[in-house]
């Protein structure tokens, strides 16, 4: 008997994931089956392809998560799944699977907010973080700053008004002919470039919200003017403009909320330049920086299980007639 463990499922985008986490902090297993190869030729996630792949992968991924953790369904406390935000057809697969398990094992079902879960990824590694925390969640699908005041008590203080940061990386990488996904490719290329070579715009200065679509346009225009310029310089300068904006809004939010800890989440949090800059700015402003390892930053089900653990205590189970919400926000 494993005490108080939750099995969670994550299928909001292009990762099919399941994990078993005890007490909201102890990861007993975490399985992530990435579909990145299925989507690479399209240069982005194709919803229908993602949904079809989830149906095929969900059974084996659940079996692996239970097997790796060495637990049986009947040992568990609850079954959780991401219920939003995300791709509607993709979310439906995970939620249907979780409800099916909840019915079979007669366990409570918990629908989890994917954005809250990105904030909770930090708790998995560091359960003693002192709120309020200023959390930057940046990925291919979302870019926002959340103030984490306490369990089940979070508020969004800024978000992107157009593209997500990761989307900007993907679009610029495609424009530069680098491939997909763009984040890691630009990160690597930028190491050989000069981040100060090109003065790309920093959008919405002084505002809490983000904007990245103008930056992408600026890169395209620059390339038109200077088609033979070093592409590593373009990558480094573009990345610097993104990171500047991300760090700027995160620190601004931390100042306003009196948060003494900076936390990162989302796929873009795996960017080496962003990690270095957040560590630097934390040091310079007398704050702590908590940067979860990249596999907890990118989409995973362990963070869903951790969130479900706290939500189960504050809100109780989610009724079985609850659906999915593709545009769910943090409230």
């Amino acid at each position: 008997m494993v005490a108080e463990a939750i099995l969670a499922i994550e299928t909001s985008c292009d990762e099919t994931a399941a994990a078993v986490v005890a007490h909201g902090t102890e990861i007993l297993s975490s399985v992530v089956s990435s579909q990145v190869d299925l989507h690479a030729r399209f240069g982005g996630v194709v919803p229908e392809i993602a949904s079809r792949a989830h149906v095929e992968l969900i059974g084996p991924v659940i079996a692996d998560a239970l097997g790796d953790a060495g637990v049986e369904l009947r040992d568990l406390t609850a079954i959780a799944a991401t219920s939003g935000p995300g791709l509607a057809g993709a979310l439906l697969v995970g939620v249907s699977a979780a409800k099916a398990l909840a019915l079979v094992a007669d366990l409570p079902y918990v629908g989890v907010n994917h954005l809250e879960a990105h904030c909770y990824a930090a708790w998995l590694e560091q359960p003693n973080l002192e709120p309020p925390l200023a959390v930057l969640v940046a990925s291919g699908g979302h870019t926002l700053v959340v103030i984490f005041e306490g369990h089940a008590n979070m508020r969004v203080v800024g978000q992107t008004v157009d593209d997500a940061a990761g989307e900007a990386f993907d679009k610029v990488a495609r424009h530069l002919g680098l491939g997909y996904p763009g984040g890691p490719l630009i990160d690597r290329l930028a190491r050989d470039g000069d981040p100060a070579a090109i003065a790309f715009p920093r959008a919405m200065p002084g505002e809490p919200d983000f904007s990245f679509s103008g930056l992408k346009t600026a890169v395209v225009q620059h390339r038109r003017r200077d088609p033979d310029g070093a592409i590593a310089d373009v990558a480094a300068s573009f990345q610097e403009a993104v990171v500047d904006q991300l760090v700027d809004k995160l620190v601004r939010a931390a100042d306003e909320a009196g948060a003494s800890t900076l936390v990162l989440g989302g796929g873009v949090a795996a960017n080496s330049r962003l990690r270095a800059r957040v560590a630097e700015v934390a040091e310079a402003t007398g704050r702590a920086a908590f940067l979860p390892p990249p596999d907890l930053c990118t989409d995973n089900a362990a963070m869903i299980a951790a969130t479900a653990w706290w939500r189960l205590q504050s809100d109780g189970p989610t009724p079985l007639d609850a659906g999915v919400n593709p545009s769910l926000s943090i409230t």
């Binding site: 949904s51 969900i58 659940i62 369904l73 057809g89 697969v93 249907s96 094992a105």
Partner: peptide, 19 residues
Amino acid sequence: LFTGLRVGVTTAKVMAQAL
């Protein structure tokens, strides 16, 4: 309907696997 279809197929598969 693709989305509807996947709800039933996923539910049936996962229940059968668990049972």
